[in-house]
Nucleic acid binder design. Structure first.
Lengths: 216, 216
DNA sequence: CATCCTAACGCAAATCCTTTGCTTTAGTGT
DNA sequence: ACACTAAAGCAAAGGATTTGCGTTAGGATG
């Protein structure tokens, strides 16, 4: 679960990190997710350490939150459903679930605010996707490249989570998956890639209306 | 240039905002773009206002930066090159130029850290794309939907800017544009959509290597 | 098992940032 | 010209942040 290089894992350092992360998470939860309401001295008191420990180790609240975010959003285990479509679908479902909640959204913002955390996380994502691809290759399937998976599925979803107020998922998860996986066959030239026939959208609520918006 | 609702435009309020924005920009530039090095009292002094003015109006540094970011990243004017491909290309070029520089990247992060700023900006982006679409429709062209433009071009580019350390643009701008616009014709089934033949990539430096990475 | 070594933590003082109640001013409407 | 209001100035109180130095926990060495 820990991203930090721990030269002495299991030691005092690890205990402090865990205590601080837990304390911060508790305090944020108690404040309804409002980050600006919690302070480092508060976290330190709850965690049973002195503030200077946190300042020296993490720098400021933003970086502490970013570190917690990357920790929290790690893809847990690689599913193995027997097929690429299954593996990707299973992973994506939990991925979207993690990120699309109001809490996940805030955690994502915490992470994106910090360059180091973001690139670190992307590395982990690439590794994870590669593992899934590896399994597919071993089965004799022909998986899309990591870049294609990122461009077609991951980027649009994360972008809409960051830039869109939609609470629910009009994220078109299954539509995007189909788009990604059906590529090699390249169905009927006209109406395939975008706006496929049988929609799986779940345009439940205040989604970002599929089409145009008002003009200035 | 100003996003804020200015009930009294041109008055003192507007002057203060301009002075504060300018002061902040200067100070950040002097510190090599390091946000954590500049403080609100510093900005206030440079702008010739008292710190409490900034605190009351913007809340904290993060929100001030987010406001500056949305202001700074507004799409200036809608180009009219006579064709959809031209309009989109011209806009995208300046768009990518704005965002992909180290400075633009930091500004983008400032904006994304703030939910309100992000959704506000997305609204503006939608309006802008709609204007471009409108021009295309008036010419009798058949432009992709705003959602398709966002999914195919905008989201992947912004995602890679945020999550990738690449200094240069291996963002595949023209490749994505082609992918977006060539959809209706749906070229040769196999090797078209992804990894087109004549690459425009400029895989100059530490880019996110096109394919797989190391395993855990 | 005893000893040494070092990264990380605790402590406390000095500094700086942030908040807040009240007053003053600039711009607008009558 | 006069009154009204949103926004800015001022100053004091209350925290947050930084920093130098002593201490400690955990690993390394023999």
């Amino acid at each position: 679960m820990s991203l930090e290089k721990t030269p002495r894992p299991g030691g005092r350092s690890a205990r402090v990190q865990q205590a601080v992360h837990a304390a911060a998470e508790e305090l944020i939860a108690e404040n309804g997710g409002d980050r600006s309401a919690v302070t480092i001295p508060q976290i330190a008191a709850r965690a049973g350490v002195t503030p200077s420990t946190i300042y020296r180790r993490w720098g400021d609240l933003q970086q502490l939150l970013a570190a917690m975010a990357t920790d929290r959003l790690l893809p847990e285990s690689v599913p193995d459903t027997g097929s690429l479509a299954g593996d990707l679908g299973a992973w994506l479902e939990s991925y979207v679930e993690d990120f699309s909640s109001p809490l996940g959204r805030r955690i994502l913002r915490d992470m994106v605010a910090d360059d180091a955390a973001t690139t670190r996380y992307f590395q982990i994502l690439q590794d994870h996707l590669d593992t899934i691809r590896g399994a597919a290759l071993r089965r004799g399937e022909d998986p899309p490249s990591v870049d294609d998976i990122v461009d077609t599925v991951v980027a649009p979803i994360i972008y809409r989570i960051l830039f869109t107020a939609a609470e629910d998922e009009s994220l078109g998860l299954s539509r995007r998956l189909r788009q990604l996986l059906q590529r090699p066959e390249a169905g009927p030239p006209g109406a395939d890639v975008h706006a496929g026939p049988e929609h799986h959208y779940q345009t439940t609520g205040t989604a970002p209306g599929p089409e145009t918006r008002r003009l200035p």
